[in-house]
């Protein structure tokens, strides 16, 4: 359906913006390494089923892209542009996010199996793993516009999944309560950022239109 496609595209775009930002500026300043490492954890733990279940070519390709690109970004940040990488402000206590997500996955899962627990863990972790990035943004104050576009596209992706879940509930009678709960939490975390983004970026664009 349309919402799902738009959500996936938005997710894809967010990563392309991020890669383009890093390559063009040859710097990773303003980008939270912690958030990026958490994304590697999110994608690897969620897409373990790549090895066991086949859904579609689209599905497999997207999963491989998300895993590969997240690992690539972390490599860029730690190795390639390491010399310019100085982020003493990226100090969000990540252990609470990982610990909290793990507890949530033990409390809420569909089956008590290794892969199902990891899958649930990845949902909760994804919901909160933007926090170090938002924290960094707040600490440094002024962010490059491009970084905010990245966060916006990333937030939009899960927000678009919400109407997709409504749609699937009515058309397929499908309800994945875990995805929905974690997705709502994720969108809530972004909501404050969305508001600021709307105020600053979109209004400025409108103002600058010829």
């Amino acid at each position: 359906n349309l919402f799902r496609i738009a959500g996936d595209i938005s997710h894809l775009v967010s990563i392309l913006i991020l890669l383009q930002t890093i390559e063009k500026g040859k710097t990773t300043s303003g980008i939270s390494l912690k958030t990026q490492i958490l994304y590697v954890v999110v994608f690897v733990t969620r897409y373990l089923d790549l090895l066991t279940t086949y859904v579609s070519l689209y599905n497999s390709l997207m999963k491989i892209f998300f895993i590969a690109s997240s690992v690539y970004v972390v490599w860029l940040m730690t190795s390639k542009y390491n010399k310019k990488f100085k982020e003493d402000q990226d100090v969000f206590p990540v252990k609470y996010l990982v610990g909290g997500s793990f507890v949530m996955s033990l409390l809420f899962h569909y089956k008590f199996t290794f892969s199902e627990i990891l899958w649930s863990f990845s949902l909760w972790l994804e919901a909160v793993c933007i926090l170090p990035q938002l924290f960094l943004l707040q600490k440094t104050g002024e962010a490059k516009a491009i970084t905010t576009h990245y966060i916006f596209a990333l937030g939009l992706y899960r927000a678009l999944y919400i109407p997709n879940w409504f749609y699937r509930y009515y058309s397929e009678n499908r309800l994945d309560l875990l995805s929905v709960s974690a997705g709502l939490l994720q969108t809530t975390i972004y909501s404050d950022f969305f508001y600021v983004y709307y105020q600053k970026v979109l209004k400025n664009w409108g103002f600058n239109l010829p």
């Binding site: 799902r4 996936d8 997710h11 089923d49 279940t53 859904v55 579609s56 599905n59 997207m62 999963k63 998300f66 569909y110 899958w119 999944y161 509930y169 397929e172 009678n173 499908r174 309800l175 994945d176 995805s179």
Partner: peptide
Amino acid sequence: PNSKLKKDEL
């Protein structure tokens, strides 16, 4: 609702 979920989302 369907309890046998197919994990086809990303």
